[in-house]
Nucleic acid binder design. Structure first.
Lengths: 132, 132
DNA sequence: GGCAATATACGAAATCATTCGTTGACGGTG
DNA sequence: CACCGTCAACGAATGATTTCGTATATTGCC
């Protein structure tokens, strides 16, 4: 009956997050594509990317289509959900659970560049203020 | 000429961050105090806390007064600066450098509880809008 | 069929974070 | 002085992450 309780994917590590970014950005990709995008020329070798994707598959962080010879991997968790998860964790661990404190920090350190962004934030604030 | 380039402290790990929280919260503390606060009854043993503080001292994450038998440790980095650093990193790695996107996420997932917080955010927005 | 290119799979090394056990020093109390 | 509790120091075990080398399978092509 509960709406959608995923089996709780583990936290992506740093490298895993980089790979997820590639998949979020470029969509389902082969190992080669991920490797080219992430380590173009420099960086880790092909088998490293392969191993990482295999590990991530075992963890449920990516899904795999192995119907072709070159398996195709796609993100197993959405960018949205991951962002939310990291945010919640950071709020808890670093801002004593106060999202507002974090927002103030964010706006103070990295003020929004565009007028549209400011407007978006104001709109959301109003929505919250009016009781959602 | 550059204003104040600290020798770039390494990122605190999870456990290290917990310890820093204790020091930020309770001020300079002995190993015993940190241990009691963090692992009261449950959790890691005393020597683990000691070892962690020694490691953190070697990394420059904490400072130490060893003039007494029970050494006194205090945070070597401020909470403010650490918050800012984590934020910047997260914005870069998870929000494509857009702080606004992160703010929207934060406000969407964890709306501010109090009216004061909302007001604070609005005030900061105005300040930003008026060209700082 | 045999070869070259490209793929997956697997195991192992290197590094780091975390935890603990043990040792030796210090300090107060009887 | 001898004892007991507390302390710092150190080394080592464990587990996770990341990297790579090697083995093996598949495909297309001559």
């Amino acid at each position: 009956m509960s709406p959608r309780r995923s089996p709780e994917t583990p936290w992506p590590t740093d490298v895993e997050l980089q790979i997820l970014q590639v998949l979020w950005q470029g969509g389902p990709s082969t190992v080669r594509e991920v490797h080219e995008t992430l380590y173009a020329g420099e960086g880790a070798g092909y088998t490293t990317a392969l191993k990482m994707l295999q590990i991530m598959h075992a963890k449920g962080l990516v899904e795999r289509d192995d119907s072709q010879r070159a398996h195709v991997y796609k993100a197993g968790i959405t960018k949205q959900r991951t962002q939310k998860r990291y945010m919640a964790d950071m709020v808890q661990r670093l801002f004593n659970g106060s999202a507002s404190q974090m927002v103030l920090h964010a706006l103070g350190s990295h003020p929004p560049a565009s007028r549209e962004e400011l407007k978006e934030i104001r709109t959301l604030l109003s929505k919250i203020e009016s009781g959602d």
